[in-house]
Design a protein around this nucleic acid. Structure first.
Lengths: 226, 226
DNA sequence: CGGAGGGTTGATTCCCCTCAAAATCAGTGG
DNA sequence: CCACTGATTTTGAGGGGAATCAACCCTCCG
């Protein structure tokens, strides 16, 4: 990146804020609010149906954008909840547009990040649409592990994971009860263990085969910036 | 839009091409290919699993981008198939980056289009994750109708629809047999009829209530360009 | 006229949901 | 120190929605 690009990037990291676990930062239907870059902690974006069911669209880990789409659509079509206490830096619409006009290549980079987000949502869609519960869980844990590894928070051995079985259920379109059963079968088959806030890949290779996991869509090298 | 913006837009509409129904224009895993803007006809983007199952991610109708994400990620993570014969204009990476650097506001507009795409995928995710088959079908047909209305190809009365029940099944994560049953119950309940390539909303209001359909995420006014 | 693609319906199976009830654990206050 | 509460995990029993398997119909088309 060039010097100007870096300085524009720096300018985006001015307003640092923190949020406590459980209290939404963004509400479905909210207008004109800012986006954030997640510095530390975990969050999730979700939608609530009228009957109270909820579907978690994605989990965000350090380095991810929060609410980028909301900024562009001028209204949030989903809610965002911090799962742990989180630290973020705020990015306003003005910031983004400024950055875009000053350095088009930066716009491309943000665009690329958004494309990666969408690719993850698509993979999530495949998960829920066409994979059985066990494969779905396996694929989901592998994707999470791969993403965390990219930011140094995980490896092929496993990763620390603050998610409850209820959160997993809301993300995977399952009931919490069934999540528990699926985790048991995966554990007993010796592929992966989720216990005490830690996911352990007991057999990474068998798990990837079982889940048909192909991490290309997470490839972290922003190709257009090479 | 300004004059330069319009001329840049014009430059994007040079290379016009046609593709016949059924033959993929983009293959999963393909490198470095172009994006397209759909002029006429219908297409769908999908992914295939190893066991041969397929999940349709989205249908594209006139005015939509095809493969925008593939361009930015430098590789296609999905395939695109024309459902009918289609007419498109080709947009290369170079075109896009040129356009971005010449007119940042145009970049924002394209970005907004991508956000809208993602919002639709998210809504699709909710559909499959948390709605029963009948609600899912109802919601899907309403969304399609709303999108088609925006480009003058539909109304609250209904729309012409070239999709087979197999395609609907692959999109909604159902079996073709079950799609047929669901369509029957919806027809017999007097809410919507899908017959002979035409979707008729027999009772638009009851259908929207039944499906909890909220079209805000399709709002067509690109807010940032106002 | 035969074959392919699409639509329709019935019978059976099974995956996952719902309901229900323990067990465990962290925190909290008496 | 211990009773009490709430959140989370675990396990069982029963039911239902959707898949699968299997026909049969229709239309279109080479």
């Amino acid at each position: 990146m060039s010097g100007t690009e870096l300085s524009v990037l720096d300018a985006l990291h001015k307003r640092r804020r923190t949020f406590v676990a459980g209290r939404d930062l963004v509400h479905q239907g909210q207008l004109d609010q800012a986006a954030y870059i997640l510095i530390s902690g975990w969050a999730c974006s979700y939608k609530i149906l009228e009957d109270g069911q909820r579907q978690i669209v994605d989990f965000q880990i350090p380095g991810d954008f929060l609410g980028l789409r909301s900024v562009l659509l001028h209204m949030s079509d989903h809610s965002i909840e911090p799962i742990t206490d989180i630290e973020v830096t705020e990015v306003t619409v003005a910031d983004l547009l400024d950055a875009f006009s000053q350095t088009p290549r930066l716009a491309t980079a943000v665009f690329w990040a958004a494309s990666r987000d969408e690719a993850m949502v698509v993979e999530h869609l495949i998960d829920i649409g066409r994979r059985a519960a066990a494969e779905r869980m396996a694929h989901f844990l592998l994707e999470l592990g791969a993403r965390l590894s990219l930011v140094g928070l995980g490896s092929k051995a496993g990763f620390a994971c603050p998610l409850s079985q209820y959160l997993l259920a809301d993300a995977l379109g399952l009931s919490a009860v069934h999540v528990n059963r699926v985790l048991r079968t995966l554990r007993e088959s010796g592929m992966v263990t989720f216990r005490d806030g830690f996911v352990t890949f007991d057999s990474y290779s068998r798990l990837t085969e079982f889940a048909e996991f192909d991490p290309v869509y997470l490839d972290h090298t922003g190709p257009l910036l090479r």
